[in-house]
Amino acid sequence: MSVMPTSSYDGGTQPPPATSSASSVSAASGSGSVSALPPVSAVSAIGLCKAYGDKTVLDGIDLRIPAGSVFALLGPNGAGKTTTVQILSTLVSADGGQAQVAGHDLATAGRRVRAAIGVTGQFSAVDGLITGEENMLLMADLHLLPRREGRRVAAGLLERFGLTEVARKPASTYSGGMRRRLDIAMTLVGSPRVIFLDEPTTGLDPRSRHNMWQIIRELVTDGVTVFLTTQYLEEADELADRVAVLNNGRIAAEGTPGELKRLVPGGHVRLRFTAPDAYRAAAAALPESTRDDADLTLQVPGDGSQRALRSLLDRLDTAGVEADELTVHTPDLDDVFFALTKETAR
């Protein structure tokens, strides 16, 4: 009998983001030019509403994002993710509710908010007609950096994002992944404390996507708060300390990836048999299981803990049957997502 966990959330493969970021928050605020105390919440919003005509896009959004963490806003297309980012980045004004970003009120201190944030939109906002280096220097100039410092910052970021070799080519000749990297590099020129990434990996190939994930993880080690939107559950799971599921303009659920997964049932052990006799015997011994007669598989509800597994194996031993394959399935964000957005799915 082989035991192989599939599609289970494997927390061991990624570094614990919360601890690594918490230590660097103070470091960043100490070295930064802004002397204000780091706000406890990088982003906080209460009751954000937005409608375009008679179409309600956001219907009362509450958010509280601790400084130095990665927050993922997860939702299907049209859920209101981009609108949320547009409001929080002062691009669009909310119809109702209030919000603070980096400690500044959106409605009354838009300019201070803009000075503290960096935004990378859904579609790369780079100037394709000029080179990558010129794009970077453009950002440095707009942030009023002295010429020499601007060159230094630009060169450093181009190096960090692996763009030095193509720095003198027009940005329009870049691949999708290169454009996104340039986009994020441009965002970092102003040393933002809160970074909004609107679907940073949409349209990227798997390699570029993993590349981008690595970049986003490194951002947080600088003490920056990252607000990202995504329609990929795997991405939120990989990157985010906290995830909010946005559906139809409302937050359907919010919590750590682990907490969200606990919200939905769906954990089970799957037993597969090749011999019909063994299958029938096992089904009789495990009446609570869900049968799939065509596939000769049984799904036994359970959380996959050692105790539950042992008792299951004991019962199989007692019945004298042996499964040919055993897999443990813990709920992933897909289950959460589908459970939460089921009612409204078309």
Partner: peptide, 13 residues
């Protein structure tokens, strides 16, 4: 249409 102006608008300029 190319998004660069949206970027400018989110900057303190």
């Amino acid at each position: 249409t190319e998004g660069i102006v949206a970027r400018f608008r989110t900057m303190p300029i």
